Computed example of a mutant assay.
Amino acid sequence: MLVHFQYKPLQHKQRNQSWLFSFYFQGQFTSGTYYYDGTIEWDSPPKQLDNEEDLKHAIHDLMLYHVYEDEHQPQE
């Protein structure tokens, strides 16, 4: 399970947007860059990873949720 998921944009409102992300997975700090096309580049990949595709899918789902939510939240 991913805990303490965080992300921040590297470039604001660019066509080829990318984000830094980090989280803890199985008690280990993990970070990387998520690109607009769904590509993930690991900075510190998890060491004991049974199924990397499942982890990438979870990151992709979280990014879609958070990026979509941020763009469509009403401004106060």
Rank of each mutant, 00 (worst) to 15 (best):
H4E: 13
H4G: 06
F5E: 02
F5L: 02
Q6V: 05
Y7F: 10
K8H: 10
P9W: 01
L10F: 12
Q11C: 14
Q11P: 01
H12F: 08
H12M: 11
K13Q: 14
K13E: 14
K13C: 14
R15G: 06
R15T: 11
N16G: 03
Q17A: 13
Q17P: 01
Q17S: 14
S18Y: 04
L20W: 08
F21H: 08
S22T: 08
Y24D: 06
F25T: 02
F25G: 02
F25Q: 06
Q26H: 05
Q26W: 00
Q28F: 04
Q28E: 15
F29N: 04
F29L: 09
T30L: 04
T30S: 12
S31I: 02
G32M: 07
G32N: 10
T33I: 15
Y34F: 15
Y34G: 09
Y34Q: 03
Y34E: 07
Y36V: 04
D37L: 01
D37P: 00
T39D: 03
I40S: 02
I40G: 02
E41K: 13
D43L: 10
S44W: 06
P45T: 09
P46E: 13
P46F: 07
P46H: 03
K47H: 07
L49D: 05
E52C: 11
E53G: 01
E53N: 09
D54T: 08
L55V: 15
H57A: 12
H57Q: 13
A58L: 09
A58W: 01
H60W: 01
D61V: 01
L62V: 00
L64E: 08
Y65V: 03
Y65W: 02
Y65S: 13
Y65R: 11
Y65M: 05
H66P: 00
H66S: 04
H66M: 09
H66V: 01
H66Q: 11
V67R: 09
V67E: 06
Y68S: 12
Y68I: 08
Y68A: 09
E69W: 06
E69G: 07
E69H: 13
E71S: 14
H72Y: 09
Q73D: 08
Q73A: 12
P74W: 06
E76M: 12
